[in-house]
């Protein structure tokens, strides 16, 4: 049984923002994370604002050079979108092995991003796309890089009256590589031990753009900026890739839990960054 709570069911985005501005109640998206956490006592709350009926938040839009995901789009919506394989290959790869089939039908991209979990599988691919998040409140909107969204374990820059409205990015250039790897015990219904996404765009035999994001190896999912700086504008030799992988691993602050030890996470963060960088360079160059 779930602990007792009150629920409001706004039908439109302005209604939802007004409810949030009232200061009573937290947003509820697909509930696939929140309900187990409420039941397990890991989350508390006596009033929730359900976003399920706010149809304006559930959309996927492809324009000339921009993709926008409404925060209410489900993981299954991402998998069903035929253009997403080109617009965000690693996001599709992550969605494909996200929890189980029924959870994918209910879980929203907004919920996965906002829960702030280090093991949220949609986040490393969105970080390597250089995605922006747009936060809405009754008093207006602001857009910031997803890279600046997370502060600490399950802590984000969002204010209590704000809602994640959408996530947007410029699709990778044709020929670039956008990869995701999830290390876990099984392919389905598993929580990530180490999650990595890499994007490499090459031009004239050199690495033009590179982004590396690591999950489940620190209190937040993060970009390995130092490692990216070592690779940008250069030919990615094995030696250089090894140095960058070492640097990325150096940024990890993993914990030991019932899925893996901190040592194992560190080791795999290093080896998987190396593996994905090699693979991405081979694909893109």
């Amino acid at each position: 049984m779930l602990p007792r709570f009150e629920l409001s069911q706004p039908q439109t985005l302005p209604e939802a923002l007004k409810a949030l501005a009232g200061g009573v109640g937290q947003p509820l998206a697909g509930g696939t994370n929140l309900f187990p956490d409420l039941r397990g006592g890991r989350e508390k709350g006596d009033t929730f604002i359900s976003l399920s009926q706010v149809g304006e938040l559930r959309y996927i839009e492809h324009t000339d050079n921009r993709v926008t995901l409404g925060s209410g789009a489900t993981i299954s919506d991402i998998l069903r979108d035929p253009q997403m394989k080109i617009a965000a290959p690693a996001l599709v790869a992550a969605s494909d092995i996200f929890a189980g089939a029924m959870v994918r039908n209910a879980a929203t991209i907004g919920g996965n991003v906002c829960c702030g979990s280090p093991s949220a599988d949609s986040v490393p691919p969105l970080l390597t796309l250089g995605a922006d998040v747009t936060l809405a409140s009754a008093s207006g909107e602001r857009t910031l890089p997803l890279d600046e969204f997370y502060l600490d374990y399950k802590k984000t820059v969002m204010k209590p009256d704000e809602l994640l409205a959408s996530i947007s990015w410029t699709p990778p250039t044709p020929g670039s590589a956008h990869l995701f790897y999830k290390l876990s015990r099984r392919k389905g219904d598993a929580i990530t031990i180490t999650g990595i996404s890499v994007l490499v765009e090459a031009e004239g035999g050199k690495c033009k753009t590179v982004r590396i994001a690591l999950g489940s190896v620190a209190p937040t999912i993060f970009r390995a900026h130092e490692a990216e700086g070592m690779l940008a504008g250069r030919v990615l030799t094995s030696e250089l890739i090894e140095e960058a992988a070492q640097s990325a691993a150096g940024q990890c602050k993993p914990i030991s839990d019932n899925r893996a030890s901190a040592e194992y996470r560190l080791l795999t963060a290093h080896s998987l960054t190396r593996r994905l960088l090699r693979q991405a360079w081979k694909q893109a160059s």
Binding site: Q9, S50, A106
Partner: peptide, 11 residues
């Protein structure tokens, strides 16, 4: 659409 009814509210 298949969903887990244990994490779906009756409402």
């Amino acid at each position: 659409v298949p969903v887990d009814s244990c994490i779906t509210l009756a409402w």
